[in-house]
Measured scan of single mutants.
Amino acid sequence: GKELVLALYDYQEKSPREVTMKKGDILTLLNSTNKDWWKVEVKATANDKTYERQGFVPAAYVKKL
């Protein structure tokens, strides 16, 4: 199945390749080969529509579930 990670801290994206997350968010882990930056998929809701974004977050800010 898919691997999930838990956001340990809030993170505000600093570039278009990154994604914003809030502490407590559960994210889908896409790639953890880089030890510093993990690629995740974030589900977000805006205007009653759910959309998914993929991007990088600092590996130290998340932990595998």
Rank of each mutant, 00 (worst) to 15 (best):
residue 1 G to W: 12
residue 2 K to A: 11
residue 2 K to G: 11
residue 3 E to R: 13
residue 3 E to L: 12
residue 3 E to A: 10
residue 3 E to W: 12
residue 3 E to P: 11
residue 4 L to R: 09
residue 4 L to P: 04
residue 4 L to Q: 10
residue 5 V to F: 05
residue 5 V to P: 00
residue 5 V to W: 06
residue 5 V to M: 04
residue 5 V to I: 07
residue 5 V to N: 00
residue 6 L to D: 01
residue 6 L to C: 10
residue 6 L to N: 01
residue 6 L to Y: 10
residue 8 L to E: 03
residue 9 Y to M: 10
residue 9 Y to W: 11
residue 10 D to E: 05
residue 11 Y to D: 00
residue 11 Y to R: 02
residue 12 Q to H: 13
residue 12 Q to W: 12
residue 13 E to Q: 13
residue 13 E to V: 05
residue 14 K to V: 07
residue 14 K to H: 08
residue 14 K to N: 09
residue 15 S to F: 05
residue 15 S to G: 13
residue 15 S to H: 10
residue 15 S to V: 04
residue 16 P to W: 10
residue 16 P to K: 10
residue 18 E to W: 03
residue 18 E to H: 06
residue 18 E to C: 04
residue 19 V to D: 01
residue 19 V to N: 01
residue 20 T to F: 04
residue 20 T to R: 05
residue 21 M to W: 02
residue 21 M to S: 00
residue 21 M to L: 07
residue 21 M to T: 03
residue 22 K to Y: 10
residue 22 K to C: 10
residue 22 K to P: 00
residue 22 K to E: 05
residue 23 K to T: 06
residue 23 K to S: 07
residue 23 K to N: 04
residue 23 K to G: 05
residue 24 G to N: 05
residue 24 G to M: 03
residue 25 D to K: 02
residue 25 D to C: 08
residue 26 I to V: 12
residue 26 I to M: 05
residue 26 I to A: 02
residue 27 L to F: 07
residue 27 L to Q: 00
residue 27 L to E: 00
residue 27 L to D: 00
residue 27 L to C: 07
residue 27 L to M: 13
residue 28 T to W: 14
residue 29 L to T: 00
residue 29 L to R: 00
residue 29 L to P: 00
residue 30 L to N: 01
residue 30 L to F: 03
residue 31 N to T: 07
residue 31 N to P: 03
residue 31 N to S: 13
residue 32 S to E: 13
residue 32 S to R: 07
residue 32 S to K: 07
residue 33 T to N: 12
residue 34 N to S: 08
residue 35 K to P: 14
residue 35 K to R: 11
residue 35 K to A: 12
residue 35 K to S: 12
residue 36 D to W: 15
residue 36 D to R: 14
residue 38 W to N: 01
residue 38 W to R: 01
residue 38 W to V: 05
residue 39 K to S: 06
residue 40 V to Q: 01
residue 40 V to H: 00
residue 41 E to P: 00
residue 41 E to A: 14
residue 42 V to N: 07
residue 43 K to G: 09
residue 43 K to P: 15
residue 43 K to D: 07
residue 43 K to L: 14
residue 43 K to A: 11
residue 43 K to Q: 13
residue 43 K to T: 14
residue 43 K to C: 15
residue 44 A to V: 15
residue 45 T to P: 08
residue 45 T to M: 12
residue 45 T to S: 12
residue 46 A to M: 14
residue 46 A to C: 15
residue 47 N to R: 07
residue 47 N to D: 12
residue 47 N to W: 12
residue 49 K to M: 13
residue 49 K to G: 13
residue 50 T to A: 10
residue 50 T to L: 11
residue 50 T to P: 11
residue 50 T to Y: 11
residue 51 Y to R: 09
residue 52 E to F: 15
residue 52 E to R: 15
residue 52 E to H: 15
residue 52 E to I: 15
residue 52 E to C: 15
residue 53 R to W: 06
residue 55 G to H: 01
residue 56 F to P: 00
residue 56 F to Y: 14
residue 56 F to M: 07
residue 57 V to M: 02
residue 57 V to W: 02
residue 58 P to N: 03
residue 59 A to F: 02
residue 59 A to M: 04
residue 59 A to R: 10
residue 60 A to H: 11
residue 61 Y to I: 06
residue 61 Y to V: 05
residue 62 V to A: 02
residue 62 V to D: 01
residue 62 V to G: 01
residue 63 K to L: 12
residue 63 K to F: 09
residue 63 K to N: 06
residue 64 K to V: 11
residue 64 K to Q: 08
residue 64 K to P: 09
residue 65 L to F: 08
